[in-house]
Write a protein that binds this DNA or RNA. Structure first.
Lengths: 152, 152
DNA sequence: ACAAATAGTTAGCTTTGCTAACTAACATAG
DNA sequence: CTATGTTAGTTAGCAAAGCTAACTATTTGT
């Protein structure tokens, strides 16, 4: 995106509009970079993110997974199929309600996630490590606010 | 994503890995939401972002635009074509070097961006407005750091 | 027992990333 | 001045991931 204060309609610095606008821009740029780092693990960001929910949150239904990842059920169904094809998770039919499909990470899924997520954030992590403790603190403080804005 | 501290391999809270990992997660979730808000303007996030560069940064070559948006030239070429088809920008051949194509926003582009970007961040902006001044400050402080991490 | 609701899947479309291969224009070495 | 190499952009073709619509198979409830 571009700098503020160039347009006559640029919002006042520090206003809600200004924060929202600049955050939007920053998020776009940061995510674009993070997407590239993901490549190293051989899995895309959406797949790793879904797998992460399973590894850290335990077995889930497809619907719950879709809700957690804020995507529609068909989208998650397809992501789950891709992860299943790679042997990273398995579908387990629910005996008490046969419409339901529970999904759980396999041992390979756990392993890949732990190795992969480290690789995934490695470059970013290195940059973070290069920051001052104060800067790191500022980012850490802002993260819960970002999650709040994301609608968690 | 999920909570930390569940895995035995979760990075120490506040460590570079922890910051990187949680920021990655927060960015994914925030962006997923922002992407939906974009729909209201009738243009996608990448298109609006590119148009924004033109409106706030002035006419650019396709290559410069691609660099600014951190995508490859063919990707930007296609986005430019889409925006051109919608009358939001125009290609202007460079007289001094006829390989070069300069791209500039049309009046319609300016208008749409100014109206659209407001609409685009409206929901987010409303949520930001609901935050305390202190929280807003914390986000604002973190934004330059996020841009730095994004590699600007 | 039949209608309505719920969980997932499948099919098909769009957008946006990418790389590879191409054209056109410029720059420079011989 | 030509030949070679470099640079800017386009075209073509692929994959991933988002969506809606339409379908199947269950379960629930009247």
């Amino acid at each position: 995106m571009a700098s503020r204060q160039v347009s006559s309609r640029a919002p006042r610095a520090g206003s809600a509009d200004d924060v929202a606008d600049r955050l939007h821009s920053a998020a776009i740029h940061l995510l674009r970079r993070l997407r590239r780092e993901d490549d190293a693990s051989g899995q895309s960001a959406p797949r790793l993110s879904a797998l992460s929910v399973l590894v850290f949150g335990g077995p889930q239904t497809i619907g719950a997974l879709a809700a957690a990842e804020q995507v529609r059920v068909p989208t998650m169904s397809r992501v789950v199929s891709a992860l299943e094809a790679d042997g990273l998770l398995r579908r387990v039919p629910d005996p008490s309600d046969r419409r339901v499909v529970r999904v759980e990470a396999t041992a390979a899924g756990h392993t890949l996630l732990h190795a992969g997520r480290r690789r995934r954030v490695a470059t970013l992590s290195a940059d973070v490590a290069r920051m001052s403790a104060k800067e790191r603190r500022m980012i850490l403080d802002a993260i819960p606010l970002l999650e709040k804005l994301a609608g968690r």
